[in-house]
Computed example of a mutant assay.
Amino acid sequence: MRPTRTELHAWRTFLRAHARVTRVLEAELVAEQQLSLGGYDVLVQLAEAPDHRLRMAELADAVLLSRSGVTRLVDRLERAGMVARERVPGDGRGVVATLTAHGLDVLRTASRTHLAGVSEHFVARLSAEQLAYLGELCGKLAD
Rank of each mutant, 00 (worst) to 15 (best):
T100A: 05
Q130Y: 12
T109L: 14
V96K: 02
V83A: 03
G38C: 11
L137Y: 02
R20Y: 08
G92A: 11
L46Y: 01
L73N: 01
L64T: 15
F14L: 12
T71M: 11
V96Y: 00
T13L: 10
Q45D: 07
V24N: 06
Y40H: 05
R125C: 11
A62D: 05
R20C: 10
V83R: 01
A80K: 00
V88P: 04
A101M: 07
Q45N: 07
Q34V: 12
V106L: 03
L73Y: 01
L77G: 02
R108T: 14
R108W: 02
R2D: 13
G39A: 10
A27G: 10
V96T: 02
H9N: 10
D75F: 00
K140D: 07
C138L: 13
R2G: 13
E48D: 13
E86Y: 12
T13A: 09
A10N: 01
L141A: 14
L35F: 01
G69Y: 14
S66R: 00
R125I: 09
V118R: 00
M1G: 15
V70T: 04
V30F: 08
R20W: 09
A124M: 07
E48T: 10
A142W: 06
R20A: 14
R112M: 12
A101T: 14
V63P: 04
R5A: 15
Q45A: 15
L131C: 07
Q33G: 08
T71W: 09
E32T: 09
F14Q: 07
A10W: 01
A124P: 06
R85D: 10
A80R: 01
V44K: 00
L54A: 03
A17N: 10
R53H: 05
L115C: 07
G92D: 07
L134C: 07
T100F: 03
T98S: 13
R108P: 08
L137Q: 05
E129N: 09
R76K: 15
G117E: 02
V30M: 08
V95M: 03
A49P: 03
V95E: 02
L25S: 02
T13H: 07
R67N: 08
D75W: 00
L126D: 02
D75H: 01
P89A: 15
R76V: 15
K140T: 13
T71Q: 11
R76G: 13
H121L: 08
G139D: 06
F122D: 03
M1L: 12
R67W: 05
V123K: 02
V96S: 00
M56W: 08
S127T: 07
L141N: 06
E78P: 04
F122L: 11
T4L: 05
